[in-house]
């Protein structure tokens, strides 16, 4: 099965794994219910690297993220149809999803990017330096809980995850798995 850059890190954290579109992803670390309420009250971090990603220079049909002039990113749950003239960059990025009411506070310890409500509302995207690594930040709230996808080049995955967990300690940030994600979304 396919593995993300964080596989061994999840293993060390005691994750129980499940299959997700051909990838071996963490289903839970403690229990989906406990993880879900942690995200609701404080903050959580999960690994969504299995999501398909395409990089293209021509505007694709929505939904898409406009990263710059002639630079678009399409990211989503598999299976996704590759947009015309795009390059598959699924494996290039590790996709770390930081969510919860304290997620902005965690980010403020890692990056100079202004993630305040008026400057970076839901569905904004930006590129910034985060934990000393170049990152693409995509804001995707769900049900009024702020959420931020942090895309970094795969080889930095462990470094950035560890930096986020360290910064999140004072805000009671906990990792969460697919089980909790499902509960949060529906």
């Amino acid at each position: 099965m396919k593995r993300s850059a964080l596989f061994y890190l999840h293993q060390r954290a005691g994750a129980e794994f499940a299959e997700c579109h051909g990838w071996e992803m963490p289903f839970s670390f403690a229990s989906p219910e406990a993880e879900e309420s942690q995200v609701h009250e404080h903050a959580g971090l999960t690994d969504l690297s299995y999501r398909q990603k395409f990089d293209t220079g021509t505007q694709p049909p929505p939904p898409f993220w406009n990263l710059g002039k002639n630079h678009y990113l399409v990211v989503g749950e598999p299976p996704l149809d590759p947009p015309a003239e795009s390059t598959d960059v699924t494996g290039v990025y590790a996709d770390l999803f930081l969510a919860g009411p304290r997620s902005k506070a965690v980010l403020s310890k890692l990056t100079s990017l202004n993630v305040s409500e008026d400057k970076f509302p839901d569905l904004s995207c930006a590129q910034a330096n985060l934990a000393h690594v170049h990152a693409i930040v995509l804001r995707e709230d769900f049900r009024s809980i702020p959420g931020f996808h942090i895309l970094v080049s795969r080889e930095y995955g462990e470094s950035v995850w560890e930096a986020i967990v360290h910064a999140g300690q004072e805000f009671h940030l906990q990792p969460f798995g697919l089980g909790a994600l499902r509960l949060l979304r529906y």
């Binding site: 061994y8 000393h132 795969r154 080889e155 930095y156 462990e158 470094s159 560890e162 930096a163 360290h166």
Partner: peptide
């Protein structure tokens, strides 16, 4: 800052 230097690891690291 935090004693955290980013490290780059290949997929076969472990």
């Amino acid at each position: 800052g935090p004693n955290h230097h980013p490290v780059r690891r290949t997929p076969m690291h472990y």
